[in-house]
Simulated scan of single mutants.
Amino acid sequence: MTTNTTNTQQTTATADSHAGAAPAGTGYAPEHPARLNPAALAPEVYKAMVRLDAAANQGLDPVLVELVKIRCSQLNHCAFCLDMHSKDALAAGESVERIVQLSAWRESRHFYTEKEAAALELAEAVTLLTEGFVPDEVYELAAKHFEEAELAHLISSVIVINAWNRFAVTCRSVPGHYTPGQFKGHNA
């Protein structure tokens, strides 16, 4: 989930147009309903998250931010955020190939710059905090590629997408209905 996401609109649109079921005769599993809509039920928390997300991403390359958000969402198994950030990355000019390779970026390192690889490694360490904290060498590598303020924003961006992932996974936000830029200009 990002700054421009409104679960209220997404949940309402999903309920109205799909009613929790895949089109008849497709052979696909039925679409699960969302458990609840935190944007509607805790609007001040949601608005604060939107503002925090916007602040976290300031000064960072938008495509890099999308790559990091996709990778964190993969690790957290957040289908809603994977759908959103993959679409946003494509709309921002990212290639399908680089998005597809993110789950195995270490084996396909040649698709990414050293700076992107350092950001992805740091994002993984922060996301998987209980698997060894954030090793000094991972932090130091990122610090070689990012100025201190930029690094602080990158870490903040990783923390915020992890929070959004937890909202979306817990609330079972429904993937597949997001359109790039769908909520641009939405005031929080």
Rank of each mutant, 00 (worst) to 15 (best):
A119E: 00
A119N: 04
A119F: 04
A119D: 02
L120R: 11
L120K: 12
L120Q: 08
L120H: 09
L120Y: 06
L120V: 14
E121M: 06
E121V: 03
L122T: 02
L122W: 01
L122P: 01
A123D: 07
A123V: 10
A123Q: 09
E124N: 06
E124M: 05
A125K: 04
A125L: 05
A125S: 11
V126S: 01
V126H: 00
T127C: 09
T127D: 02
T127P: 03
L128E: 03
L128H: 04
L128I: 05
L129N: 07
L129M: 12
T130I: 06
T130E: 12
T130L: 08
T130R: 06
T130S: 12
E131L: 10
G132K: 06
G132A: 08
G132V: 03
G132P: 08
G132E: 04
F133Q: 12
F133L: 14
F133W: 11
F133Y: 13
F133S: 13
V134H: 03
P135C: 11
P135V: 05
D136T: 15
D136P: 15
E137L: 13
E137I: 14
E137S: 14
E137K: 15
E137N: 14
E137M: 15
E137F: 15
Y139G: 06
Y139F: 14
E140R: 15
L141H: 14
L141R: 15
L141W: 01
A142F: 00
A142I: 00
A142W: 00
A142V: 01
A143N: 07
K144S: 08
K144E: 07
H145G: 04
H145S: 04
H145E: 03
H145R: 07
F146W: 02
F146P: 00
E147V: 14
E147K: 14
E147N: 13
E147R: 15
E147H: 15
E148A: 13
A149P: 04
A149D: 12
A149C: 05
A149R: 08
E150N: 10
E150A: 14
L151G: 04
L151N: 06
L151V: 07
L151E: 01
A152R: 15
A152W: 07
A152G: 11
A152K: 12
H153G: 05
H153E: 04
H153D: 07
H153T: 08
L154M: 04
L154F: 02
I155Q: 02
I155G: 02
S157E: 01
S157I: 01
S157A: 15
S157T: 15
V158M: 05
V158R: 05
I159G: 02
V160L: 03
V160F: 02
V160M: 05
V160W: 00
V160P: 01
I161W: 00
I161G: 00
I161C: 02
N162G: 11
N162Q: 08
N162H: 12
A163W: 03
A163M: 07
A163N: 05
W164I: 07
W164T: 09
N165F: 02
N165M: 13
N165C: 13
F167H: 04
F167V: 08
A168C: 09
A168V: 09
V169T: 11
V169K: 11
V169R: 09
V169P: 02
T170G: 12
T170K: 06
T170M: 11
T170Y: 14
T170V: 13
C171A: 14
R172T: 07
R172S: 06
R172C: 08
R172V: 06
R172P: 04
R172K: 13
S173G: 10
S173Q: 10
S173T: 11
